[in-house]
């Protein structure tokens, strides 16, 4: 088994645990590269059929290419899709910095769809290497009724025995890609031929390395126009992946506060 086989087998194990233990279960699909890999792994785990709905936390602010890609994949892969509209920025925590408030719209959208559908498990494609605060996450992470993350008192998780029991009124965040790195994701996309939004590929010297909403995500300088070129670029780079995500950098603890309040 090589490194990608190892990661794939582990993620499939987690997906199957979540599907067995947490009903109803939904998957957040940001339509970025990571959640596409997650969706692909779900198809492998369940033999071509995705047995739970996929949810877009829709701010209405995604790039048009993202919406077009979404419509194509829903049809081709026969997905059960939920569009979860996010409340306007006025409803977010006013003490957060401005870009973080834009991101916090998704937190509110997520809380509402969880409440509306009664989800006990929500799966998402975050990785430990993306961002230091995400590095502390568990594979199955309990959230209280308010959706908050108590990172100071996380339950123990070892030997692949996950915390698949939501607290009263709460839910479990499931993170099957936690052990993957950005490079692993691209190498797997290359190996498996997984489709991604074309915005990741260079056009006129710029490409998106991390995809968020139009107004708070910025492209990087790059000439990488294929998956192979992206891999070569990343192998040589020391720039952090989320450098183009404005909300991470407004203050020392902005992202930590977002996550404690229930952000992905």
């Amino acid at each position: 088994m090589d490194r990608l086989d190892d990661l794939e087998a582990q993620s499939i194990f987690i997906l199957r645990e979540a599907e067995n233990r947490l009903t109803p279960l939904g998957m957040l699909w940001s339509i970025g590269k990571d959640s596409n890999v997650l969706l692909w792994l779900a198809r492998k785990a369940f033999f071509g059929r995705v047995p739970f709905p996929v949810i877009l936390l829709d701010t209405g602010n995604e790039f048009p290419e993202v919406y077009a890609f979404r419509d194509r994949i829903i049809k081709e892969w026969g997905l059960s899709y939920i569009d979860a509209p996010c409340p306007p920025v006025e409803e977010t925590d006013p003490s957060l910095p401005p870009k973080a408030r834009a991101a916090a719209r998704k937190t509110l959208g997520l809380k509402r769809i969880i409440a509306a559908r009664g989800f006990r498990g929500v799966m998402l494609g975050i990785r430990r290497d993306e961002q230091a605060v995400r590095g502390k996450e568990r594979v199955m992470s309990p959230r209280d009724a308010a959706g908050g993350w108590d990172f100071r008192h996380q339950p123990a998780e070892f030997w692949d025995q996950y915390n698949a029991e939501p607290p009263p009124g709460g839910h479990i965040r499931v993170h099957p890609l936690l052990a993957w790195t950005e490079l692993d994701v691209w190498r797997y996309i290359e190996r498996e031929g997984i489709p991604v939004v074309p915005l990741y590929f260079s056009r006129e010297g710029k490409r998106f390395r991390s995809l968020g909403e139009k107004d708070i995500t910025f492209p990087i300088d790059s000439t990488a126009a294929s998956v192979g070129e992206i891999i070569a670029e990343l192998e040589a780079s020391r720039e952090p992946e989320r450098a183009g995500r404005a909300m991470d950098h407004e203050s020392e603890d902005a992202f930590e506060r977002l996550r404690a309040q229930g952000y992905m």
Partner: peptide, 11 residues
């Protein structure tokens, strides 16, 4: 592992 009240209490 051993679990009690929904959390892992021992290995």
């Amino acid at each position: 592992v051993l679990r009690d009240k929904g959390i892992t209490v021992g290995g």
